[in-house]
């Protein structure tokens, strides 16, 4: 879908056109599911549903329809962390920090890495590795200072390698 078409679709959905809302839902659901899946894990469908409800309830507040994916991403990540936390499934993280970018274990068994991280750290990993965002943007989205993201990532290299190197 071209950007002008997408902007028009968002505007129609903002006006309450249910068929446009449905089409936008079809467009956004896979994206939101890709973000919520790795953060909320077993609660991924619940997180995706909650995130999409927040997105569609607040759609009229989106001033820049062209920015719909970035706007949806911020909501999805926040909702995924919240749902994962409130589900009470979060195990005490064995990996206290996020593994370094490009670490071969990420590719080898991402699910195991995610299982061993806290939801907030999964969110850092998703935003950095899946979405390709820089530390400043990740910090902004998660409402933590860039320095915190940087130090987490720096310390992560050691702790992650130690955990995997046993």
């Amino acid at each position: 879908m071209s950007e002008p078409d997408r902007v028009e679709l968002v505007r129609a959905a903002q006006r309450g056109d249910a068929l446009a809302m449905q089409e936008l839902l079809t467009l956004l659901t896979p994206y939101v599911g890709r973000l919520c899946g790795p953060i909320a894990l077993a609660d991924g469908p619940d997180a995706t549903q909650e995130a999409l409800i927040v997105i569609f309830r607040n759609l009229r507040q989106l001033a820049e329809p062209a920015a719909v994916f970035g706007w949806a991403r911020a909501i999805a990540v926040r909702e995924a962390v919240r749902v994962a936390r409130s589900a009470g499934r979060a195990r005490p993280s064995e990996l206290p920090e996020v593994p370094a970018k490009g670490d071969p274990q990420l590719a080898a068994d991402i699910r195991d890495v995610l299982d061993r991280l806290a939801p907030e750290h999964r969110a850092v990993l998703v935003l950095r590795d899946l979405e390709g965002l820089d530390e400043q943007t990740v910090g902004g989205l998660l409402d933590v200072p860039t320095g915190t993201v940087k130090s987490r990532l720096f310390r992560a290299r050691r702790s992650f390698r130690k955990a995997w190197g046993r």
Partner: peptide
């Protein structure tokens, strides 16, 4: 090797529930 990230899906009934929450 590219990591095989888990993806969450939303079945049609849940999608309809989302629309219902969004339609006043």
């Amino acid at each position: 090797m590219t990591p095989n990230w888990p993806v969450a899906d939303l079945d049609p009934v849940r999608r309809l529930a989302v629309l219902a929450e969004a339609i006043p």
